[in-house]
Design a protein around this nucleic acid. Structure first.
Length: 592
RNA sequence: GGGGGUGUAGCGAAGCUGGUUAUCGCGCCGGCCUGUCAAGCCGGAGAUCGCGGGUUCAAUCCCCGUCACUCCCGCCA
């Protein structure tokens, strides 16, 4: 290589006219007019039109004929003002072009499998196989730039508050609770395995015992669970832990960090403190533990209105201990056709909802397939409760509380999308608080809602043993535009209480000793009160970049089957490698 | 583990109540062209219709299975 860049492809303006510059980059489109040839040269910073003129560029012009899309070029030339009327407003450098005087073909390119600059609508399979090319696209380059900036802001913000960035091991120990672990066999310890961390939880608590006081880490975490559009098997958490603080302290730090992030990354001013809602209220009013607060459409419980109704569906639900809830779409009657309403039914099926009912309020009175089953008193009571008037549509679900809640939560989100209620330029944070400490698993036994190190709320310390399922915790989730972007809690710092919680969870003393002995020990050596939070960096970036797929914010994401189409991971390994690790492998085909 | 969607040339799509040369656009290759800007004009190549099996005189199309990608439920302390 002879010609090294003096400028990027994104920075030349009319002020640079007359300068001799050198650009490096990739050829986008090549427009060969036989005489003059135009090539759009781009790099990470932008795109500049370079011109090969037979008179100006001499034999360089011949070489330009051979240039194809994605060839790698270095060009030297003169910055010239474009002829009158030939400016291109679509690009930032559109006032000028570079007249080539020297040229170096740095590399050729095979014909790309897709248009790199417009890689939007290509099947994921093709894009992921050639991820190195897709990453050349403006969309992903932008995502990587923003992600990098976000990480800088996070580091700067937390370091300025005296947090220490401390790395914790990737090779750890399998834990009995939580998600499935990714395991790593130990060569020098035959038959034993490390586990990749689901989060650095136990390390960061240990660091608090160590007196680090304020810790953070931008940590890779691993969970071997099925993927979703917002879930990858390996993902990144902004992991934070603080000593001598309570819920308020952690929330304050988090709010400061997120507000800073919003200001620096998208120039949005976010007000702090963030609003809060209890878990119970969130489930009741929004049918979700991660409510999108950018719009209303609150859910109302009308079970009591129909306690003695003759309408079969409602009657059954109420009788079976379920609930009847509804949403009033105030003034949206005209925006929802009969078909739109009918199309809502399939949306509740995944949650085992049997269907929905609706009432359309019109000037001529209510219209609905179910209204004939209501008494006048029920109708009146309902309309009063729901403040229903002409132009409204009320949508009902009746079933068990869980089904109704999930169904209406999903409908609420769907309708908001359909009616365009969620302002994409708004960043609406909300804390979800007052979680139960435990939830009952299938067999009715307590299982941690958050994780087994979460402290019970102070006022519930005494009911911990008598009525564990009624105890609430000092846990909190942070939600941004309906996306759960983080969660944390105040931790148990007493060995005695930690032991008690383990036993409530059915982890006997011996197992607790074996798996968490170090934690129980550490808690005995002057563990300070402490708590923290983990923020999902990938999800934050999704919201900031307005994308629906977590793959758009990760350089090398996995497919839904957790494989990497570019590298072929996971792959087979030679038998010798397995032998060395004392591993026998039984793929399904070999199982009798 | 379950349910939905997709798979046709390098890419994006059409075709299909089953009919013999599978269509279009982009890209690619060749030619022409001195101001285009995801240039234009002319010509050309390129497809085991994801894979396997079945039904049929005949399958891209119907049936069964399977693989890949994707969305959702379960799962994700």
């Amino acid at each position: 290589m002879r010609l090294y860049r003096t400028h990027s492809c994104g920075e030349l303006r009319s002020a640079d006219i007359g300068k001799t510059v050198t650009l490096n980059g990739w050829a986008a489109s090549c427009r060969d007019h036989g005489g003059v040839t135009f090539i759009d040269l781009y790099d990470r910073w932008g795109i500049t039109q370079i011109v090969f003129d037979p008179e100006h560029s001499g034999e360089m012009h011949q070489a330009a004929h051979a240039v194809r899309s994605q060839y790698v070029l270095a060009v030297q030339g003169e910055v010239r003002r474009r002829p009158e009327g030939m400016e291109n407003e679509a690009i930032e450098t559109g006032e000028i072009d570079v007249y080539v005087t020297d040229f170096e073909l740095l590399n050729v390119s095979a014909t790309p499998p897709f248009d790199v600059l417009h890689a939007g609508m290509i099947h994921a399979e093709t894009r992921l196989k050639h991820r190195y090319l897709e990453l050349r696209s403006p969309k992903l380059q932008h995502a990587m730039v923003m992600r990098s900036r976000a990480m800088q802001v996070i580091r700067k913000n937390l370091c300025s508050r005296d947090f220490l960035e401390i790395e914790t091991p990737i090779l750890g120990r399998a834990t009995p609770e939580g998600a499935r672990d990714y395991l790593v066999p130990s060569r020098v310890n035959p038959g034993k395995f490390y586990a990749l961390p689901q989060s650095p939880q136990l390390y960061k608590q240990s660091l608090m015992v160590s007196g680090m006081e304020r810790y953070f880490q931008i940590a890779k975490c691993f969970r071997d669970e099925d993927l979703r559009s917002d879930r990858q098997p390996e993902f990144t958490q902004v992991d934070i832990e603080m000593s001598f603080t309570g819920k308020e302290g952690v929330m304050e730090v988090t709010e400061g960090l997120l507000a800073d992030l919003m200001a620096e990354i998208c120039g949005a001013a976010v007000e702090t403190p963030f609003p809060r809602i209890s878990f119970t209220d969130a489930m009741l009013k929004y049918g979700s533990d991660s409510p999108d607060m950018r719009y209303g459409l609150e859910i109302s419980d009308v079970t009591e209105v129909f306690r003695d109704t003759k309408f079969g569906v409602f009657k059954q639900a109420a009788k079976a201990g379920g609930v009847i809830r509804c949403i009033n779409l105030k003034g949206y009657s005209a925006d929802l056709s009969r078909k739109d309403l009918d199309d809502l039914t399939p949306l509740v099926k995944p949650y085992r909802g049997k269907g929905i009912a609706w009432i359309r309020m019109t000037e001529q009175g209510p219209q609905s397939p179910i209204i004939k089953f209501f008494t006048d008193e029920e109708s009146d009571h309902l309309y009063r409760t729901m403040d229903a008037e002409a132009g409204d549509v009320i949508i009902f679900a009746a079933d068990s509380e869980k089904i109704v809640s999930q169904s209406l939560g999903a409908l609420r989100a769907h309708l908001a999308r359909k009616l365009g209620l969620a302002d994409s330029g708004r960043y609406s944070f909300v804390w979800v608080t007052d979680f139960p400490l435990f939830e009952a698993d299938e067999s009715g036994r307590p299982s941690p809602m958050h994780h087994p190190f979460t402290a019970p709320a102070e006022q519930d310390a005494d009911i911990l043993e008598s009525d564990p399922l009624a105890a609430s915790s000092d846990a909190y989730d942070i939600v941004l535009n309906g996306s759960e972007i983080g969660g944390g809690s105040i931790r148990i710092h007493s060995a005695e209480i930690q032991q008690k919680v383990f036993s409530l969870l059915g982890i006997d003393e011996q197992e607790a000793r074996e798996k968490f002995g170090f934690l129980l020990d550490a808690l005995q050596y002057g563990a300070p009160p402490h708590g923290g939070i983990a923020l999902g960096l990938d999800r934050i970036m999704m919201v900031l970049l307005g994308t629906d797929s977590i793959r758009d914010v990760i350089a090398f994401p996995k497919t839904q089957k957790a494989s990497c189409l570019m590298t072929g991971a996971p792959g087979h390994v030679p038998q010798e490698q397995l032998d060395e690790l004392h591993i026998e492998s039984f793929p399904p085909d070999d199982i009798e």
